[in-house]
């Protein structure tokens, strides 16, 4: 089966010349159709950068230095611009991180949802608005017709994230990149949003790359997971397996740093990326280092 997303040896650098920094150092990742993959790692591990690279949203000073990104077997990096644009938003969708800033403040919700449908599916204005109401109903927004006429500042953050989720699934994508979609929400809203993503994914059969630093979220909805650190894949596999028997000491440290109700969290022991690079092949030495505690 052709993977929904196939990333091979992806290297992304920020800056140029001698000051260039590698944010992704040869990341490979394969996502099967319908698979929900958690992409975890601490801040700066490069997990958001990976999602942005797939969507063509890298910041202006960042560049893809090497590697391949293929969507359903088609090379996204070699693709011509119009072809790529016809995939983005339609076959490949994004659920953004911050619902407060991700909707256009001066346009009504209805117009923002409808323009997507009109752009990608060539719907008429009326059909698009009608479909937009259905989509809002699908993400459990009450009185969808009324909400279509509202501006973003007139609805809550949780509502806005629902609207953004509805927009992500509007054109029936087969790959959804969820970039920490619950980070900016409070805990009760978080759970509802997760359930929503899970339900829509099942209905639409999309593969989801769920970028997060929250292992609890991964445990809840991701069947597989990838642990990223300093731009490298440290470990990947079935979520249950990785969480039960983390193979890499960094994953163990990450797990230990997760707050739980039954015990206090340990501080995540910072490991300099340069060390990781040297130690990647020498996991035992890393083990000793981590066991020695915070420096």
């Amino acid at each position: 089966m052709t993977p929904a997303l196939f990333i091979q040896g992806l290297r992304v650098t920020i800056g140029a010349g001698t000051s260039a920094a590698n944010v992704l150092r040869g990341v490979s990742l394969e996502l099967q159709p319908g698979e929900v993959r958690g992409l975890v790692g601490e801040s700066g591990a490069g997990k958001s950068m990976l999602g942005r690279a797939v969507l063509g949203l890298l910041p202006a000073n960042a560049a893809i230095a090497a590697g391949r990104i293929a969507f359903e077997g088609r090379d996204l990096l070699a693709m011509r611009e119009p072809e790529r644009r016809s995939l983005l938003g339609r076959r490949i969708a994004l659920i953004p991180q911050d619902p407060m800033t991700s909707l256009n403040p001066v346009k009504r919700i209805g117009a923002q949802v409808a323009i997507l449908l009109r752009h990608h599916l060539a719907s008429s204005r009326r059909a698009a608005l009608q479909r937009a109401a259905e989509l809002l109903a699908e993400v459990a927004i009450r009185e969808p017709e009324r909400v279509l006429g509202l501006y973003p500042h007139e609805i809550s953050g949780g509502m806005r994230q629902r609207v953004l989720i509805a927009m992500a699934f509007a054109c029936d994508p087969s790959l959804v990149i969820a970039d920490e979609p619950t980070t900016a929400l409070d805990v009760t809203v978080q759970r509802q949003v997760l359930q929503l993503v899970e339900r829509l994914r099942q209905r639409h059969g999309a593969a989801v790359l769920f970028v997060t630093h929250d292992l609890g979220v991964v445990a809840k909805i991701c069947r597989t997971m990838t642990v990223l650190h300093a731009g490298r894949v440290l470990e990947e596999g079935e979520t249950a397996h990785v969480l039960a028997r983390p193979g890499h000491p960094y994953t163990r440290a990450l797990l230990a740093a997760t707050p739980r109700a039954d015990r206090p969290a340990e501080a995540l022991r910072p490991v300099p990326p340069s060390l990781i690079e040297n130690l990647w092949s020498e996991a035992h030495q890393f083990d000793r280092l981590a066991a020695a505690g915070p420096a």
Partner: peptide, 29 residues
């Protein structure tokens, strides 16, 4: 540079489309 304009790129809109539809109405204020 705002998120909503960046995200429009990830939704397959071209830069002129984004400038005209998403960015300009905001910059006008």
């Amino acid at each position: 540079d705002q998120d909503y304009a960046q995200i429009a790129r990830a939704r397959g809109f071209s830069r002129p489309e984004i400038l005209l539809r998403e960015v300009f109405p905001n910059a006008l204020i």
